[in-house]
Simulated assay, not measured.
Amino acid sequence: MQLEKAILATITTNAKKVTAGSSIFICETKEEMEKVAANLEAILDGISHALSDELYIIVKH
């Protein structure tokens, strides 16, 4: 099975911005969030997108 289009992970500093649906990573600082997003992008072979200053998603196109 190969995923073609999906949200693989959500990374945030504000837990109120997300609900269930993908793996959620809650960080304490913006710097930590950016580092986690960059690592997950490489690990999951996806693309990181910043939706706001408090929210990133990793997607597979």
Rank of each mutant, 00 (worst) to 15 (best):
K5H: 13
T13H: 05
Y56V: 04
A15L: 10
I43V: 13
V59Q: 06
Y56M: 09
T13R: 06
I24V: 15
A38K: 11
A50K: 15
A42C: 02
T29S: 09
V59P: 00
S22N: 13
L3Q: 12
C27R: 06
S23A: 14
V59G: 06
S23Q: 10
D45F: 09
I7D: 00
M33S: 12
L55N: 11
T29I: 10
V36A: 12
K17V: 03
N14Y: 08
M33H: 06
A42R: 01
G21N: 05
M33E: 08
N14T: 09
A20G: 08
V18M: 03
M1A: 15
Q2T: 15
N14D: 14
E32H: 07
L51S: 10
K35V: 14
V36F: 02
A50L: 13
K35R: 15
I24K: 03
Q2D: 15
H49V: 12
K60R: 13
A50D: 14
M1L: 14
H61I: 13
L55Q: 09
A6D: 08
N14C: 07
E34Q: 14
L40N: 01
A37G: 10
A6T: 02
I58L: 07
K35Q: 14
D45N: 14
K17T: 00
Q2V: 15
I24Q: 02
K17R: 12
K30A: 03
S22V: 11
E32W: 03
S23P: 01
K35P: 08
L3E: 13
A37P: 04
A6W: 02
M1E: 15
T12S: 08
I47A: 10
I57G: 06
M33P: 04
D53T: 09
L55G: 08
L51G: 12
K17Y: 05
K5Q: 11
A6L: 08
T29Q: 05
I11E: 06
K30G: 04
C27I: 03
S23F: 11
V18H: 00
S23T: 12
Y56C: 04
D53L: 09
E4P: 07
I47N: 07
Q2R: 15
T19M: 06
E28A: 12
H61C: 13
N14M: 01
K17N: 03
A38L: 14
A20L: 06
G46T: 02
K60M: 05
A37Y: 01
L55M: 14
A42S: 10
K5Y: 11
E34P: 09
M1R: 15
E34Y: 12
E31D: 09
S23K: 09
L44N: 03
I47L: 06
H49G: 02
E54Y: 01
L3I: 14
E54R: 06
L3R: 13
K60T: 03
G46P: 02
V36L: 11
E31K: 10
C27S: 08
V59A: 05
G46M: 04
T10D: 01
T19H: 05
E28H: 12
C27T: 07
I58P: 03
Y56N: 04
S52N: 14
G46D: 04
L55I: 06
I57E: 00
K5L: 10
I57W: 06
S22F: 05
T13E: 07
G46Y: 00
S23M: 12
L44S: 07
G46E: 02
T19A: 05
E4I: 12
E31Y: 05
L3M: 13
